[in-house]
C-alpha cells in the first residue's frame, strides 16, 4: 500500500542522523569531538504539545508515561513537549499545535476554567484525554464537600465549555491509543498529502465523538450508549468487546447481549467506543496490519 510505505519511508528519513562517532571509535572522534555533542534533533519538524491537567487523577498522565521508550522516541522525533505539570519544567499553558487535556473542569474553580479557555485559545487541536475530559466519567458523581475546597462540587467534561477536536476515551486511556493518536497528529500536521489522508481517516471517528453527543445527553457517556445506540438499534452481535473493555467489570451477557450493572458504571464510555458496532471504519481497520507496522516503525 503506497500510503503506508510512504509513512514508513518518511520515518526512516526523519530519523536523526547518528552521530558519526557513535558506532566506530576511529581517529575521527579525536579530530572532531564537537560532532558527537551536536544537537541532531530535527526540531523544526516536530509538532508542539501541551498538557493541561484539570480534575483528573493523573492516571492519564501515567498512561502517557507508560509508553516507556516509545514516549522518549515520540519526544525525540515527533513531539516537543512545551508544557506539562508533571513531566515538564514549564507548567503554564503555552501556544502549541496540540493540547492534551486531562480531567474534567470544575466550574467552581476560576483558575481551572481560565486554564481551559486559555488552552483552547492557544492550541490548534485540543484533545480530551481520558474519560473525565471526554464525558465527565467518575467526576459526574461528585457532590463537593472535599477538604480543602469543599465548595468545588460541579464538574463538566471539557467539551461543555470549549470546542474539542479529538476524544481519547477510556479510564485510563491506554498508552497505545495515546501513542497512536500522537503519531497520527504528527502525520496530520507535518506529513505529506498521503500521510494526512491516512491520519484523517484514522482520527475521523475520534474527531466525530465530541460532536455526536451521547445517549443520556449533556455528553454523559455510560452503558446507556451501548443500550440505545447499539443494542436497541439492532446492531449488537454479542462479540463481547464491551465486557472486556469495561474497567469496573460492570458488563455481563444475558441472552448473548451485554447487560450493564448501571450502579457500577462509572460513565467512562469505554464500552461504547470499543464496540465494533458503535463506529467502525473499513478504510482504517482493513489495513490494520500495515498501520500497526507503520506506527511501530515510527517508534523504532
Amino acid at each position: 500500500m503506497g500510503l503506508l510505505s510512504s509513512v514508513f519511508k518518511k520515518n526512516v528519513s526523519t530519523e536523526p542522523p547518528k552521530p558519526a562517532a557513535a558506532p566506530s571509535r576511529s581517529a575521527d572522534v579525536a579530530a572532531k569531538p564537537a560532532e558527537t555533542k551536536k544537537e541532531v534533533k530535527p526540531v523544526a519538524d516536530k509538532i508542539t504539545l501541551g498538557y493541561t491537567h484539570l480534575s483528573g487523577c493523573t492516571g492519564c498522565t501515567v498512561a502517557l508515561a507508560d509508553n516507556y521508550a516509545g514516549l522518549l522516541t515520540l519526544l525525540d522525533r515527533y513531539v516537543d513537549l512545551k508544557y506539562m505539570p508533571t513531566l515538564a519544567d514549564v507548567r503554564h499553558v503555552q501556544k502549541v499545535d496540540v493540547s492534551f487535556v486531562e480531567g474534567s473542569v470544575c466550574i467552581n474553580d476560576k483558575l481551572a476554567v481560565e486554564e481551559l479557555k486559555e488552552t483552547r485559545e492557544k492550541s490548534t487541536i485540543v484533545v480530551a484525554l481520558g474519560g473525565c475530559a471526554c464525558y465527565g466519567n467518575i467526576t459526574r458523581f461528585c457532590r463537593g464537600g472535599q477538604q480543602n475546597q469543599p465548595q468545588h462540587e460541579a464538574y463538566l467534561p471539557i467539551n461543555e465549555l470549549i470546542k474539542v477536536d479529538v476524544f481519547i476515551p477510556g479510564c485510563a486511556p491506554t498508552p497505545q491509543l495515546i501513542r497512536n493518536v500522537a503519531v497520527m497528529a504528527y502525520l496530520l500536521l507535518k506529513g505529506t498529502k498521503e500521510q494526512k489522508d491516512l491520519a484523517t481517516a484514522y482520527l475521523k471517528p475520534l474527531m466525530a465523538l465530541p460532536v455526536q453527543g451521547t445517549a443520556c445527553g449533556a455528553s454523559t457517556a455510560c452503558f446507556c450508549d451501548l443500550m440505545t445506540n447499539v443494542i436497541d438499534q439492532g446492531l449488537c452481535m454479542g462479540c463481547g468487546s464491551c465486557a472486556s473493555a469495561c474497567p469496573v467489570n460492570a458488563i455481563t451477557h444475558e441472552y448473548g447481549k451485554p447487560q450493564g450493572e448501571r450502579d457500577l458504571c462509572i460513565k467512562c464510555g469505554a464500552c461504547y467506543n470499543q464496540c465494533p458496532r458503535s463506529w467502525f471504519s473499513f478504510d482504517v481497520v482493513e489495513n490494520y496490519e500495515a498501520i500497526n507496522e507503520a506506527i511501530m516503525a515510527a517508534l523504532q
Binding site: S241, S244, A245, C246, A270, Q274, V284
Partner: peptide
Amino acid sequence: RKLQLYPIGARD
C-alpha cells in the same frame, strides 16, 4: 482489530 488500532479499554 479495532481494539488493536483503537485500544480504548484494552491496555497492552
